[in-house]
Simulated assay, not measured.
Amino acid sequence: MRIGIVCPYSWDVPGGVQFHIRDLADHLIALGHHVSVLAPADDETPLPPYVVSAGRAVPVPYNGSVARLNFGFLSAARVRRWLHDGTFDVIHIHEPASPSLGLLACWAAQGPIVATFHTSNPRSRAMIAAYPILQPALEKISARIAVSEYARRTLVEHLGGDAVVIPNGVDVDFFAKAEPRPEWQRGTIGFVGRIDEPRKGLPVLMKALPKILAARPETRLLVAGRGDEKEAVEKLPAELRPRVEFLGMVSDEDKARLLRSVDLYVAPNTGGESFGIILVEAMSAGAPVLASDLDAFAQVLDQGAAGELFANEDADALATAAVRLLGDPARRTELHERGSAHVRRFDWSTVGADILSVYETVTDGAAAVAAAEDPTEPGGLLARFGLARD
């Protein structure tokens, strides 16, 4: 099958949607499909062979964050060229309601279109206001996927229609088989995310840290992600700052090793999350997870059965739970075992098969419609009456 995938966000800025698209493309290629991904990217960004650059992206406030998107006449021309050259059996557009390549591709594409909605934003006035503009493009979509029930709810409430829920995928074994690093073990808490994006929740964790260290002074916090490290610790007492180690941007391999090494992974995100791929990665690596009780996080963690939850933005609740878990190896082992079993439902072997099933449904439907409209094709009008030419 020839599959075209449209990524809305800049390929050179790591994020959950980009990782999902990258891993989906790798999975499909491994199965023997032809895949091309169209994505914004700076000229100097090294790209996998299956990624086609749509040009430089610009920062745009979107869904409580700043996304790097690509939109405009030049982008539209590149989208049309990519579609023409690709002759795809199916187009898979991610975030078609964002002002980026997905919407441009939705306007320009012909044939079967599958759309995945990642955003969870139940009070998006911008999406409501933009609906009259989006409607003609969205009506061309053959099938809709939402990465979680909360992304599906956002779609239903703002844009109408419905979607099948297929979660983000993870290569579970990649994380499960990573080698721990000894220097990252023994009394460590892990955090992975953009340091300077408040909704990722690092300020909440920093506020909880003094109470955690007062109870367990040997604890260290390992932070992986880009951002201003000095600003991140400026409200932390000077004597506690050495207990925080910033690792900067890490490779996928080192992220997996980090998650395999820590005693506890903390996800203090405060909002704007439709899924929580880092939770799935942490569970895949066997890390006990403590996360804010966002609806999407609760769903990923099986309502607290596969990981513990604390009240969102409550630093005291976070600290209390972290101190208890760090002092209870048996509970951490229990969370490790439950998480490792629960996370298998997110493996690409399952998620990829579900997405391929959607592709096959829309391409089979398009072929049936084409045959019905061509009177000489099997199933066409002339063929039904035995009048088609040989």
Rank of each mutant, 00 (worst) to 15 (best):
Q303R: 12
D228S: 12
A315G: 07
A368W: 04
V52E: 10
G169P: 06
T87W: 05
G160M: 06
Y131C: 01
S357W: 02
M127Y: 07
A77Q: 14
E253T: 13
Q185N: 01
P329S: 12
E373I: 03
A368P: 02
I145L: 12
V60R: 12
S65Q: 06
A163Y: 03
R257D: 00
L279W: 08
E337C: 03
I3T: 08
S36T: 15
K211D: 10
M206N: 05
D390K: 14
C106G: 14
N168V: 08
W11H: 04
P217I: 10
A67Y: 07
I91C: 14
L74V: 13
R81A: 15
K230F: 00
T87G: 13
Q185P: 03
E157N: 14
E245G: 01
G72D: 08
V79F: 11
G304A: 08
P203Y: 10
D252S: 11
G379P: 06
D12T: 04
D364Q: 14
R257M: 09
T188D: 06
M283R: 07
P329Y: 14
M1C: 01
V323N: 11
A232I: 05
P48S: 02
V192A: 02
P48W: 00
P61N: 09
T320R: 13
A151L: 03
L335E: 09
R345G: 08
P203K: 12
L356E: 15
S292C: 01
Q299H: 08
A130L: 14
V170H: 04
G15P: 03
A370S: 12
D85Y: 02
L47V: 08
A176W: 09
D173G: 01
F385A: 12
